[in-house]
Design a protein around this nucleic acid. Structure first.
Lengths: 336, 336
DNA sequence: CACGTCTTGGCAATCGATTACACGGATGGT
DNA sequence: ACCATCCGTGTAATCGATTGCCAAGACGTG
């Protein structure tokens, strides 16, 4: 097994371990002939180094941890891919954890990441209040960037989408389509995004004179979307539109509409949030808010890299602008 | 920052570092009073240990690496979640990497994981031939389990689905529906799954007297599904059915059918493979092969744990049985 | 009381790579 | 020809936790 150490390489090359280290890492120049000998010896032995020992000595792992509520949600999947890509450019590796939307599990993951000496952490916290303790603690230990959602009161950077603007786009679009009443289906999680989306929905519907039928809170899943729509059906006359706090919920809503014979967009308009790849494939295709995921990922890594540097700047908060993607679920006629 | 070491704790508790280590890890019993003092000191200082130093000394990281071709593909997402869950039960953490279907990137990830001293690796290799060198090397360094796909010639365990049985289910189902000709849309990747699926398609269509219209090879993506269907449309009269090597391809195919006015299942039957969550949500819902992902994940972790033990058994290969999920895309009438 | 056993805790070596410091030899300037 | 630099290399300390070995005390037994 992988038991060849720098000492073996040094011996075979006839030099000291210091020289091997320098030849392979380039930390300081070595003579060409020695460099040649060392690399050959390393190749011959199949030396691959011991990252653990290296990390211990340098007190850097070139690794960042990322904690997301769910890997299965395509929005986070895209975010993760973006972050991994950006990190790779910077020569770092990603340590991915799922908190499964559970604050306790999230706290455990954070402890584990800190114990493993990651250089920094990117997190999309589960809960606005119950995540506070663990996230602040972690932020005190090492550089930390919150993405998408954030918990208030943590001294850290944040990057995400402008949720208020997003809801403005949605509500204006619905109102322009003649919607007079609307329901909102969201999550019970009291985190920033969720709350800002609900608040934005209320604010902009009020502004446009759209009456708020119901606000239903569950979780970010297809299953909850189904259940919410069933409740709306059971509750009596439907509103003109159902806006959803993410695409998974909206897909569940659409599914139940299809099963119940509710025509979309004929009888009801439906909107989502995130623009996951499957939003374009549903029946009907879903009008939704597109998040600039790659930009969010890039910015998160940029902020983290900055935080890894020597000087600590004041926490940055960047809210990137979303855009509205209009599809058939709000009345665009099926293209022929 | 997190600079409190075991020495600080020892000092504060008035004992040696050895005692602190033993009190906190429970490696050997300590007297109740000392245990109390140590835990209190650790709490007071917010000690969280240095996993790197610990890993170096114990030469175990309690971490396993996983390399998948894509995080965005829901099939792998589900597999990753399953593996993470199973590992967590065993007190280990997951180091996730995406190879982006690129053998070179895959090799780099494997080197990196080995250098980081993960205890073992779970990999779904990209390519049947071009992944061989890196995967064999890694398998020589530490315990390794292949999942879903495998490269032949590597001395390692494998766990995945019985692809031949899967295609038998699909072809029998189509033939039972009266299909006389069919096309197959798959990937150019010459890995085990892909090849076994194509081979299974040819074998079972032959057995059932279904003529093979075309076999189109691209990659596992919605985009390729779209392109393949466009080619079929351009090529002339459509076959009775299009079978796809994964659900993403099938979703792309369905999308183009909808755009082109091809009725599914009226004019054409379509099947997928994997049963990702979105397969039930498409228009029409997709008939597909369900993979027992959680079982695959559990089995992979079980095999890895076994391989981490002292004695090395012969490489195991377990092919789990898939099942067919029949939905509207092969003629089930829309439920009313 | 003497001796063996068991428990608890400390000392110091150890894991493998990095790097501060030192040293010898070559080079260049005056 | 002499001294100051500079370059390449080696020696050994270091990162922080774990653990083999040993010693001191507690306890039990004959």
């Amino acid at each position: 097994m992988g038991r060849v150490t720098i000492r073996d390489v040094a011996e075979r090359a006839g030099v000291s371990t210091a020289t091997v280290s320098r030849a392979l890492s380039g930390a300081r120049p070595v003579s060409p002939s020695v460099h040649e000998q060392v690399t050959r010896a390393a190749d011959d032995l199949g030396y691959s180094g011991n990252g653990i020992a290296s990390a211990l000595r340098r007190s850097r792992t070139d690794t960042v941890g990322m904690v997301v509520p769910s890997i299965a949600n395509p929005f986070f999947t895209a975010l993760v891919e973006g972050v991994e890509h950006a990190l790779q450019q910077a020569g770092r590796q990603l340590f991915l954890c799922s908190s499964r939307s559970d604050p306790d599990l999230e706290a455990q993951r954070l402890r584990s990441l800190v114990a493993r000496q990651v250089d920094g952490i990117v997190i999309s916290p589960v809960h606005g209040i119950r995540s506070l303790e663990a996230v602040s603690w972690a932020a005190g230990q090492l550089p930390l960037v919150q993405v998408d959602r954030y918990v208030a009161g943590v001294d850290s950077d944040w990057v995400g989408v402008d949720d208020d603007l997003a809801l403005q786009l949605v509500v204006d679009h619905l109102a322009d389509r003649g919607v007079r009443s609307a329901a909102f289906v969201s999550s019970t999680l009291t985190n920033s995004s969720t709350e800002l989306r609900v608040a934005g929905f209320r604010e902009h519907t009020a502004r446009r004179g759209v009456s708020v039928d119901q606000v239903l809170l569950g979780d970010y899943s297809i299953g909850w979307g189904r259940e919410a729509m069933q409740r709306l059906l059971a509750a009596g006359p439907l509103p003109d539109a159902v806006a959803c706090a993410d695409d998974l919920i909206a897909l569940g809503v659409l599914q139940v509409c299809a099963e119940a014979g509710v025509g979309v967009p004929g009888d009801l308009l439906v909107t989502g949030f995130d623009d996951i790849p499957y939003a374009a494939l549903s029946d009907p295709p879903l009008t939704t808010v597109r998040q600039p995921q790659d930009d969010i990922a890039d910015e998160a890594v940029r902020l983290l890299s900055a935080a890894l540097g020597p000087d600590r700047a004041a926490p940055a908060r960047s809210a990137l602008a979303p855009s509205l993607v209009v599809r058939a679920s709000t009345g665009l006629t099926p293209s022929g």
